[in-house]
Structure formats: structure tokens, C-alpha cells
Computed example of a mutant assay.
Amino acid sequence: MAVLLETATLPRQDRAEAFYAAMMSASVPSRVEHEDRHGEVHARMDFWQLGAPDLFRNEGSGIRLVRTPRHVRIGAPERLALAVQVIGSGQFSQDNTDRRVHTGELMLVDLTAPYDFAWSGHGASQAFQIDYDDLGLSVETVRRAAQRLPSSPLYELVLHHLTVLPVVSDSLQGTPAAEALGAATTQLVRALLSSAADDRQWHPAVGDVLFTRILWYARRHLTDPELSPARIAAEHNISLRYLYKLFAGHQLSFEQWLIGERLAGARRQLASPESRHRPVAAIAAEWGFLDPGHFTRRFRRAHGMTPQEWRRLHSNPD
């Protein structure tokens, strides 16, 4: 995470100018109006680079952002922003449509067109920003989707994803997984907009994107003994039946996939020098195999040798 602005460290008379500079570096040109320009202007802006797309969070006192036709003519990357209002409520206007954006609601902003967005008092919004070229959808499809976001079956899923994205992004910064997270989020946003716009060309991708996100979630929780099909289905707002259907569509059994992933994790740990003195049963339990005999049978079936034999074969001597 990069902190673009923290007004608490600045003299009061410099805050409005610093806010404008930070906003212009993080997004597209627009006019910035502060609710109390000569009073208590305060803000913090955070920025995460996730490969080509990025995540931008702004929290602070009342503001109004106005992107006029003149700003559009100045030029900027052809981008859009899918934002979630995380504190307070805002008033958003674009394409002859006005709406109130409440806490916990999504807002789609076409950054290639004029818009007006404001909140009063203390508020916060975070936006996933992506180029149209990377999204792979037409401007017409995006604008059609903007009017119908809540109609998509993926609305709650994407809302939850964007809400927790800063915390996840912090843990992945500086790793190859950060770019993978950006690509996965792009796919999820594409599926949301396609389904909301009723663009049937992309409907088959919805299940694929959801399946990819489920695998990513499950791999992050492989060592959690509470991980179960019911929990995964609940976390992704789908039925247990649909979860099994997704795996079957990829010629997989959920249970067999989970066992295979956990065996792979145990196999890596058995060969790790840091774990050479840990009992095999302890490693097995860490990866969800509470019965050592069951673990040994599963391991032998998958790898043709016992866990102890694997450890002796792959551990490096001191």
C-alpha cells in the first residue's frame, strides 16, 4: 500500500492543494470542491497497484468531485471505476441519472464521461480502477450495466470482494500474487457487468470466474479444520448444490480436489528443512488429516510411498 495523502501531517492552509494533487495522481482530471475549504479539511488516500488495475481509497471530510466535458477533452486513460461506499453516503450523477449511494453499495463510474459525486461530513469510498482495454467490454455494455448493477446475481459477491480487497492487497503487496489478484478481480468485475447488462456473450464466463475465486479462497484456507463445502458455499452466496455443480463442470469432485491440495501441502512441508524435526502426525493434522493412519494410506496411494519414505528421500542433510 502507498499512502498518497495524510493531511494530519500538513499545515491546514496546504491541505486543499495537497488533496487536489493526490486526487489527480490517483484518478482522472476533475474539479475538487471541499465542503469547508477554509475550515477542517482532512483526508487520507491509500493506493494499491494490482498489476494493470489499481485500488484507490479516499476517506475524509465532505467533498465534491466534478468531471466536466472540458476535463474529458483534456484526455486521460480510458478507464472505469467500480467503487463501494464504505462510510457515509454519497450523491452520484452521470449520464442523466442521479442516485444516492448508501454505505455498503456499489457505484459504477465511467471515467471517460462527465460525472458529479459528493458526500457531506465524514465519508469514505474505495474504487477498483481498470482500463477498458483490459476489461474487454464496450462502453455501451458498461453504461447499460451501470443502471442495473443490483440485478446481477454477482452483486453481493463483488461487493464483499471489493470491501475486503484492501486488507487482502496489503498482505500480498510485492508478491506475484498481487498481480494475480488484480487479474482475478478484473474477471469478477467483467462477469458482474456482463450479467447486469444482460450481455449473453459473457454469460458462460460467470461460472468460470466464480469457480476461480472459490479455488483461490479454498487454497488460502486449506489448513483450516473448519473448511467445508457448506462454509465455502455460504462465503460465496451460492447453494451447496451449485458448488458441487461448478466442480462437476470442471470434471472434479470437491472432496477429492480438497484432499489432493492438502496432500500436496503436507508433501511440501515434509520435504522442508524447517519441518524435518516435526512429527509426521503433527504435519498431517495441520493439513486436516487428524487420523495418522488415514493420512499414510492416502499419501501412499497418491505418491507410491509412505510420508516417512518421502521425507527421507527429499530432505536435505545438514
Rank of each mutant, 00 (worst) to 15 (best):
D170T: 13
R241K: 11
A230C: 06
Y242L: 07
A180P: 00
D198I: 02
W257T: 07
E226N: 08
T175W: 12
G207R: 08
K245D: 13
L240P: 00
S195V: 06
G207Q: 05
S151R: 12
Y217I: 01
T141Y: 02
I238W: 00
A233L: 09
Q187T: 11
G207C: 01
D198N: 07
A197E: 04
A266E: 03
L227K: 04
D224R: 13
L246A: 01
S138H: 12
W202V: 02
V142E: 04
L243A: 09
V164M: 12
I214Q: 01
I214D: 00
A248E: 12
S228C: 06
T212L: 05
D224M: 07
L258K: 04
R213D: 05
R200G: 08
A196W: 04
E226F: 09
V168M: 13
Q256V: 04
A145M: 04
L149K: 01
A180W: 01
Q201R: 10
S171A: 15
A234Q: 13
R213Q: 10
D224K: 06
V142D: 06
R213F: 01
A233M: 11
H203T: 08
V167Q: 15
A145L: 08
L188Q: 09
A177W: 06
Y244E: 09
S194V: 09
E235V: 08
I214G: 00
H160R: 15
W216A: 14
H160S: 15
G249A: 12
L188T: 10
A184G: 03
L193N: 02
L258P: 05
T186N: 02
A196Y: 05
G174T: 06
D198Y: 04
A178V: 13
Y244V: 03
A183D: 13
A196I: 05
S171E: 15
T223Y: 01
R241N: 11
R219T: 13
I232C: 03
W202Q: 03
S228Y: 07
R144H: 08
V139A: 14
F247L: 14
V167Y: 14
A196V: 04
R213W: 08
K245H: 13
N237F: 15
E156T: 13
P204K: 03
E140G: 12
A178C: 07
T163L: 14
R190Y: 14
G249F: 07
A184L: 15
A180Y: 01
L162R: 00
V189I: 14
A146S: 15
F247D: 12
N237W: 10
P229S: 06
S151D: 15
P166Y: 11
A196D: 00
